[in-house]
Nucleic acid binder design. Sequence first.
RNA 1: GCCCGGGUGGCGGAAUUGGUAGACGCGAGGGGCUUAAACCCCCUUGAGCCCUGACGGGCUCGCGUGGGUUCGAAUCCCACCCCGGGCACCA
Length: 806
Amino acid sequence: MSYDHKAIEARWQKHWATEGIFRAEADPSRPKFYNVCMYPYPSGALHQGHVRNYTYGDLLTRYKTMQGFNVLSPMGWDSFGLNAENAAIKDGIHPRINTENNIDTMRSQIQQLGSMYDWDRELASHDPSFYRWDQWLFLELYQRGLAYKTAAPVNWCPKDQTVLANEQVVEGACERCGTPVVHKNLAQWFFKITDYADRLLDDIETLEHWPERVKTMQRNWIGRSEGARFDIEVDGGDSFDVFTTRPDTIFGMTFCVLAPEHPLVPSLIADSENEAEAREYIAAANRASELERMAEGDKTGVFTGKYAINPVNERRVPIYIADYVLMGYGTGAIMAVPGQDQRDWDFATKYGIEIIRTVQPPAGWEGEAYVGDGTTIHSGFLDGLERAEAITRITRWLEEQGIGEATIQYRLRDWLISRQRYWGCPIPMINCDNCGLVQVPEEDLPVLLPDIEDYLPKGRSPLAAVDEFVNTTCPECDGPAQRETDTMDTFVDSSWYFFRYADARNDEAIFDPEKPAYWMPLDQYIGGIEHAILHLLYARFITKVLYDMGLSSVEEPFMRLFTQGMITLEGAKMSKSKGNVVDPAGLFASHGADALRLYHLFMGPPTDDAAWNPNGIDGTRRFLERVWKIATEDYEFADHGADNADQEILGLAHRTVRKVTEDIDRFHFNTAVPALMVLCNEFSDYLSGSPRRETYEDVLRLLLLLLAPMTPHIAHELWEQKGYGNMLATEAWPTWDPELAKEESATLVIQVNGKVRDRIEVSADITSDQARELALGSDKIQSWIDGQEVKRVIARPPNLVNVVVG
RNA sequence: GCCCGGGUGGCGGAAUUGGUAGACGCGAGGGGCUUAAACCCCCUUGAGCCCUGACGGGCUCGCGUGGGUUCGAAUCCCACCCCGGGCACCA
């Protein structure tokens, strides 16, 4: 019988599903393993990135199951979002229909890959039974002061016609479509993630099994800066706050700068001789996209006509407006110290402002602003102090004067969650003329997303055009009121879905806290590196909120994070738009899911990007053919007792068990696969000699057990055909016998002065002295020594002897 | 500019963490099977050179570049070059 992958794969997929072997139930008597692949956005069909992800995930699910863990491996759909909506607009099909069709296609392909999930816990974020708990969670955050609505300058994507979170703006452009982002002043909903900045930063230390680079990216994103905040008076009334990390340089302040959006600006310029010029500058700054503002390079600004008083020396310094100061960071105002800050230096040089150095640069310094350490100069009572001491001293002085204090500033800003788009979870709030902002009562949840005809973006949510949706009555005063028409960022959904898996069918509550208390935290989370900041930071934040609410037993959701590399083709990322995707469906038919899985495991280090080689899968398919042949061929077994050949192949099999186990544990799948190939090659050689039945069966059993998590279909089929059992998935993972695994012999490499000059086969338990003797006894080595003095002999039995002569 | 990764055959990549560089696979070349091809099987495959009639065997170089440490370096240290990623007017 030949290897008919289609029949075998279909048969076992059906069998696993009907047996329900991956349905998980909490069981405190067993060690649990909660294993999640980041739930996919249902784009239409699986791409090789998904295949890679789910192959790794399923390998672990099966491996850990065989090791006796109670494994939970669920699957769901990140089904709300702009992609679905834009696709729907393009094709003229309602996003729900499109999305649900895509889910069906992808679910079926995931099953064809042989990936096993607990489908009883399947969830989709566009399903009202899921998003009602988004709404519930929103209201909880609102009640805790963690959700608020405010007018603020926000990032606006002119193409997608919606606002974006800071995290979704990449190099001044929309992360999704690349359109340059502009600033708008809009009333929007925010989650107060900044309240958790310190905890989010501190707890990164506890994430031992996260990739270092992801942790670094999160640290940079949170961007903690220590410094001081203090009050500066405007000559003639008013005052403003500034933040600085270098209060020690305060004597060098020769001007101040306010961001164009700073609230004090209008009154400052009101009756100034520069008013017209200033207004024009502010208007231009407002119009300019983020990209244009950055691209200018040259610092620009305008004098307000007003002066500020430096609190340490009463010096009068000019106040400027300049867009290199950002309203969103610190206080939107700075003390400018050109001597110690290159940006201030550039500005001062351009506008002819005085520069005073307050830190002594090193001898021979020819640079411009000096930002390094040094002794404080030209600074009154700070003179002669080193930086740290000067900072302490001036901060204490500011506190004594009652005008300032030490403070910590974060780069992280609050999470903007409103979206002016249709395909998302409606924000459950109502605007009442009498009562103001009113929550939708819990019993009225979910606020259903209505079916509409026209979901084209028009600069406001398409829901705003749906009277039946908008018009409602106020839950408090029963008067006429209007619903919020913005929807939530889909990253809200993905911030807690892994809790919901633990109790996915609960109609009474977001989940029963007892359920995730067993499963959480995730023992393994696998996904793309592109989520290093956005999703993983938001999910950590919401988990901490749930912890504070008493709903989560853990403060950190993801114990081990694995970020896989991308699949590339001819140097480019595979993507629909580039038209270079390799569709798994064709490969299921031509090579089979097992060959595809094995190729993904074999390709290269899982963390690295991997280049797709169209011929690579031929190799893994050939390997499976050989496995098939080994298992199904008829042999004439010899009657003799176990000889050398038997010992060798058994020893290799046990060493392979050890190697594969260790490699899976450290995520080195690309070296586990070759170990199996070597075993098969040697096994074939053994079988072409005079094999014994016992040895054959022992080695074959081990081979199939090791293949079970990687290529489950063929492994199950052969396991059953050989009569070893009818459900390999629940067999115990093999252990290796250290005695059998021991190498009998080794190659002793003999070097003279570090160069390999001879090799001798030796027994593996050779001693140092024996190795030494053998080395010096070798004719070849003697001819290399050639009468020279032997100075040292370094022996590392059984592998190496180095003879040092000269 | 700053912070991470990474440079090994024609290609993807191994190398027990300082001890035989190139496992395994792809590709390529040669041979077998076949009327022929595909499949499959066997051999060769880092570069240069040498010995031998042949079977075989040997030498030198070689892990981005240059230096260093060491009996011994792809692996550790210093400097530089290149590629990829992240952050970036953050006060």
